[in-house]
């Protein structure tokens, strides 16, 4: 069974690339455009990994991350936080809230793909 990735981002311009890249990597993809949609799809789609943008409307990536970690069923889900904020406090907070990796925009697409592979292989 192919691994599943949930992409949570509200900017279509980056979603196009992310979706394409992950499909090329052989994963099943679902897209969520805000926090609520993300939580719904987490329940229905059962992803193995979430690419989570921090800057989202209504509910930010940190909160979604915290929500994922609070549910024992979702404990195995890998979380990669994507953000344009690269401050040390943000990285520390992301890690403290249970993110597995923190990627700062702009990022090299190849490196992101490699990181996703690596994290899903380890499972």
């Amino acid at each position: 069974m192919g691994k599943k990735i949930l992409i949570v981002d509200d900017e279509p311009n980056i979603v196009i690339s992310l979706e394409f890249l992950m499909q090329q990597g052989g994963y099943d993809i679902e897209i969520a455009r805000d926090g609520q949609e993300a939580l719904n799809k987490l329940g229905s789609f059962h992803p193995d990994l979430v690419l989570l943008d921090v800057m989202l409307p209504y509910m930010d990536g940190f909160e979604i991350c915290q929500a994922i970690r609070q549910k024992p069923d979702w404990n195995h889900i890998k979380v990669i936080l994507l953000t344009a904020k690269g401050r040390e406090v943000d990285i520390t907070k992301g890690t403290a809230l249970g993110a597995d990796a923190y990627v700062t925009k702009p990022f090299a697409t190849r490196e992101l793909v490699d990181k996703v592979h690596e994290m899903l292989e380890a499972v």
Binding site: Q66, Q70, R87, V89, T92, K93, A96
Partner: peptide
Amino acid sequence: HDAELWCNPAGSAQLATLNIIFP
């Protein structure tokens, strides 16, 4: 202030936590 804050619910120690970090 370059500060961030978040709150953790009561874990095993039965204590809720508020965290604030500064450089």
